[in-house]
Amino acid sequence: MNDRRRINGPAGATLAPFFDDAAPQDLDTRSTRSRPPNATRKLLLKTGVTPSASGSAYLEIETSAKPGLSGLKLSCSVHGPRALPKSAPFSPHIVLSTHVKYAPFATQQRRGYLRDSSERDLGIHLETALRGAIIADRWPKSGVDIIVSIIEGDQDRETSKLQGDEVWDMMNTLSGCITVAAAALADAGIDCVDTVAGGVAALVQDADDGSAPSIAVDPIPSEHKRILAACCVAYLPTRDEVTNLWFRGDLPASDLDLYTSLVGHGIQASKNANRVLIDCLSGTVG
């Protein structure tokens, strides 16, 4: 119950605008993918957006040509190393705490101010991805807070109903969170073994005729007919290590090759993101 501490608006629940489905252009809003299957969208990354924090970064995935289709916009701030709360037990290394929060206006459905399960999910995956990259024992007895605000989710506004796309949107969001958090951590000057970046690959089916599904990197759910499976990889390029792997979908267990190649494509996407990350960080010292 956070009711008393916020302004809650009318007592009766309000409805999101219901759009006129009879509009002619609605018949086929599903755009098709214009990028080649192994190309990621353009990333924009900037550090130092929150001067009051120890480190911060902002990430934007460029919107595709089609208007109304939103790109991901994330802002991340890092606070620490700082003293652990009094109640915390002794820790010989740094304690990570990650928070991922959607802004109320980030998605089609208005988000509340309390964290929901998907946000907690993202937070946990982000923590695992980063924990593998940080040299934790350099900072005994201390904690670091990593806060990612999702200013705009990776979602199509025009499709009025959600086709169960949220799960796949979360994959893209997580990969963005990992990259932006890595930039903010580097900005804060916290020791890392490598620059970790996220990448997504998905197994998609574009036609209904039962043709073989194909693998696409950095998928936009609304551009594909159906997504069978997707995975988000957090990858350390110099070490050639995966710190977090999140796989969702439906893939026959027998087909190990397909699985490996899906992860391989995820790593490919992560390498692309890493290049942007490195450019961005080199810019700050140069």
Binding site: I7, A53, V78, R82, Y113
Partner: peptide, 25 residues
């Protein structure tokens, strides 16, 4: 009467060291 304007301010976005998420406003 009908509460048509609902402004809310969120500081707990890590905007400053004293504003960290996970606590009530």
């Amino acid at each position: 009467d009908y509460d048509l304007l609902v402004p809310n301010i969120e500081l707990a976005t890590g905007s400053a060291p004293q504003f960290l998420p996970g606590v009530p406003p």
